[in-house]
């Protein structure tokens, strides 16, 4: 029976004979079992010994092909993991902020930290999904706002929004915007639009599995600085220039307050420790190698630095007198403006 077997190969094992890279993108799950089936060498050896008439069909896979297939499989798995992570992050952010009375203008430090951490792998389209998801739940699209999104009563599909006075063209009249209703209903207020969009533009455009590991663009997301509030109300983040300009007791008390805030802000974004242990990790970061998917199939490079003695300070090379006017160019000494008077003219 086994001699007639080759055409009857079960359909899944097709990857064995065709180039694996071609099929790698189709699905990681189908690759993994078929590859693992190839790996036990005992079964392969038995089959190899039997038939001479079928030289290549049952041969063990080319290790090169196997490596390529595994590489692609790991990549796809990493991508799937990243997507699952983003999905769970979205679900997490839908429930933010933690307290129903939170003020979007002065969010609690813990909420800000969660938001920042969660948004790191996001693309702007994922952020849009988050907004949509929050709206479905009936909340304002901005992740730190506990209020409900507004609902328009009238049935029109568009609304005209008027800007403040003298905001139109040429400083006269009012600016007019025509906004589709669904865009308007995403948010609770115009200030939340600003805050949310301020975050959105900071997100990286490329998906997280294609980013370099040292890409810090999306990692340091800042929130919109809130404008100075009216007297008596509290806002956390203030512009620093405000404090410089203002004098008197008011400013000192406020600067203390702001100092607290900046301290907490730096606490949330703790810089990674730099040490000898971290040097390999840093190296990997620099190369964009930190993704575990790429580790396989690559040469593991161990870099050990040679000790350099710093005793003998190397003196800079001193140019000789003939280089005073720039020297010669490929043996030719130019007879420019400076050379006739100098030693260039022989």
């Amino acid at each position: 029976m086994d001699r007639e077997a080759p055409p009857k190969v079960p359909p899944k094992s097709i990857l064995r004979t065709s180039t694996p890279s071609l099929h790698a993108p189709s699905s990681a799950s189908t690759i993994a079992p078929s590859l693992s089936r190839q790996q036990p060498p005992s079964s392969n050896l038995q089959q190899q010994e039997q038939p001479q008439s079928q030289p290549h069909s049952k041969a063990s896979p080319d290790p090169h092909h196997l490596a390529i297939a595994l590489h692609h499989a790991h990549r796809i798995q990493a991508q799937k993991d990243a997507e699952a992570l983003i999905l769970s992050r979205i679900l997490e952010l839908v429930t933010l902020p933690s307290s129903p009375s939170a003020d979007p203008a002065s969010p609690s430090a813990a909420d800000v930290a969660t938001l920042r951490a969660a948004l790191a792998p996001f693309q702007s389209s994922d952020y849009d999904n988050l907004i949509l998801e929050r709206n479905i739940e009936g909340r304002c699209g901005y992740a730190l706002c506990p209020r409900e999104h507004r609902r328009e009563d009238h049935k029109g599909n568009f609304r005209i929004l008027w800007g403040p006075k003298s905001s139109g063209s040429g400083g006269r009249g009012r600016e007019m915007k025509i906004v589709p209703r669904e865009k308007l209903e995403m948010w609770c207020s115009d200030s939340c639009v600003k805050r949310a969009m301020y975050v959105r533009v900071q997100l990286a455009e490329d998906p997280v599995w294609e980013r370099r590991a040292d890409d810090r663009r999306a990692k340091e997301i800042t929130l919109l600085e809130e404008p100075r509030p009216l007297k008596g109300t509290n806002t956390t983040t203030r512009k620093m220039d405000d404090q410089v300009v203002k004098g008197g007791e008011d400013s000192t008390s406020r600067s203390e307050y702001a100092g607290d805030q900046t301290a907490s802000a730096t606490a949330t974004t703790t810089l990674p420790l730099r040490g000898i242990k971290m040097s390999f990790k840093d190296l990997a970061l620099e190369r964009g190698d930190s993704n575990s998917a790429f580790r396989d199939g690559r040469v593991d490079v161990q870099v050990t630095e040679r000790e350099i003695s710093h005793d003998a300070a190397v003196a800079p090379p001193m140019p000789g007198p003939e280089y005073r006017h720039g020297g010669s160019i490929e043996g030719y000494t130019p007879k420019g403006q400076s050379s006739p008077r100098g030693d260039g003219s022989d």
């Binding site: 997507e83 699952a84 999905l87 979205i90 679900l91 999904n129 988050l130 949509l132 998801e133 479905i136």
Partner: peptide
């Protein structure tokens, strides 16, 4: 249904 719901459904 929203895109993340689709992803959740097939997950």
């Amino acid at each position: 249904i929203s895109p993340s719901a689709v992803r959740l459904l097939s997950g």
